[in-house]
Amino acid sequence: MKLKFMDFINGIFKAIFKRKKLIRLGVYGPVNVGKTTLANRICKDWIGEELGTVSKIPHETREIQVKEKVKIRSNSKELDFNIIDTPGIVTKIDYEDFMKFKLSEKESKQRAKEATKGVIEAIKWLENVDAVLVVLDSTENPYNQVNITIIGNLAARNIPVLIVANKIDLRKAKIKRVQNAFPQYRTVGISAEKGKNMEDFYEALFELIK
């Protein structure tokens, strides 16, 4: 009787002081697919502030950016996330490509140097995430080796993956093509910029974590 009472008291204490698990959510994908736009959308939706700057010039995000303790609610459930926005992963970086965006040669070389470091960091951070949003541009061909390598690495580490087919507001968007490329994973189509289909996205995110 005494033991049962102690268990009951312990249960109450555990329920009160139980620390909510913080989920480290990585945002991965190739360059200029809208990773930071999505991270900003999530942060804006739940804490009212943005995480990073976005630009049409590739490799705008060249460092890992983390927004801690973002509380997200969906269907009366609540979870705490650390949102980890990563630089786009590529296999090549040519500083001359940045000069097409009217950056000077010096600026372009500096951007290329920082971008290479960013890719290395993004790959290293694969060890430090609990779940990943792989963001793809739904207007582009999804059969890209970078996408396959990222997803393959996450699968090898048993990290849950949600594929986010972004830019569905654009006329050329083909969500089905993204789904067909990675049939083993759930794909959710959104427009991070316009905030389209975000309810389905949050629902899918909670499904992923459970």
Partner: peptide, 19 residues
Amino acid sequence: EAELIKTTMEEINATFRGI
């Protein structure tokens, strides 16, 4: 494959632009 991308990034310079 991921390590190949990482090593490629480490070696990018004025003449080698990646793979």
